[in-house]
């Protein structure tokens, strides 16, 4: 296959010590539905990878396996040198403290104010942190997304785009080394979506974070990716830069860019 010849993620040459995330031979099924079948991926420190796939192709399942919310049937997911499926609850929490996760539905806690939403991961991961430090970090995270004035508001009082920004601020507050974005622009109008993508790119540059973005929004793929991975039939079908894949004649690749 032309696309596979160009770049197959599982067969990449790993840069020694530079990989933040290495996924090998990942399988995940729900009954007879084989969502992930021999999926391979490597992400280097500071790299921004977008996983592109159709709806229902297993993108969200992949990202939930990476963060340990779903247990894979087979295969390994090494993050910071540790295999996620083998970790106990405490070890998993230690890894999760270094990982940000932006949920598709934002997942802001409805019963808490924005301040409490942002404080929550801080309090849970860093129990010793003082209230002054917490306040400073909350305001810093809100400044990063330009929403300082919403600190004492409830999530229900905010627009969809603002909620997405707050969710991003909550993700940033722990200064994660890698951020996983699950469909960051879904449900937003084009202008707001563009603003969110620009913010993601800005954050990547500012904090030099590694990013794994799950998306089917081509604007998002184009703007936020150093490398694009195409997920077809539960495996990494093709990988390369946006421009190289754009020129790829393989019908399975081409369908995403038409």
């Amino acid at each position: 296959m032309i696309a596979e010849k160009e770049h197959i993620a599982g067969k990449e040459t790993p840069s020694p010590g530079g990989n933040v995330l290495v996924i090998r031979n990942l399988f995940k099924s729900f009954g007879n539905n084989h969502v992930l079948a021999d999926f391979n991926l490597e992400i280097q420190k500071g790299e921004s990878v977008v996983v592109l796939g159709k709806s229902g192709s297993g993108k969200s399942v992949l990202i939930k396996c990476i963060i340990g919310l779903l247990e894979p049937d087979k295969g390994s997911i090494e993050m910071f040198g540790k295999n996620i499926p083998d970790l106990d609850e405490q070890e998993l929490d230690e890894i999760r403290a270094k990982v940000g996760f932006l949920f598709q539905s934002n997942a802001l806690y409805d019963s808490m104010t924005i301040r409490e939403n942002l404080e929550f991961p801080l309090r849970r991961h860093w129990i010793e942190v003082s209230q002054d430090e917490v306040n400073t970090m909350v305001m810093e995270a809100l400044e990063d997304v330009g929403l300082e004035h919403t600190v004492d508001m409830m999530p229900a009082e905010l627009s969809g785009g603002m909620r997405k920004r707050i969710a991003l601020a909550r993700t940033l507050i722990l200064k994660p080394e890698i951020i996983l974005y699950d469909e960051p622009t879904t449900g937003l109008d084009p202008m707001t979506a563009k603003g969110i993508i620009e913010l993601i790119v800005e954050i990547q540059k500012k904090y030099n974070t590694t990013s794994l973005v799950i998306s089917h929004d081509m604007n998002c793929v184009r703007m936020a990716s150093d490398r694009v991975v195409i997920l077809v039939d539960g495996r990494c079908y093709a990988s390369g830069t946006f421009d190289s894949l754009l020129k790829n004649p393989d019908p399975n690749v081409k369908q995403f860019f038409e």
Binding site: L69, R96, A97, F103, N106, A107, Y109, R124
Partner: peptide, 15 residues
């Protein structure tokens, strides 16, 4: 909370 992924978010937040 379950259908809006808030429970998953809690788990990711070390809870």
């Amino acid at each position: 909370m379950k259908v809006t992924e808030q429970i998953d978010a809690m788990e990711v937040s070390g809870t």
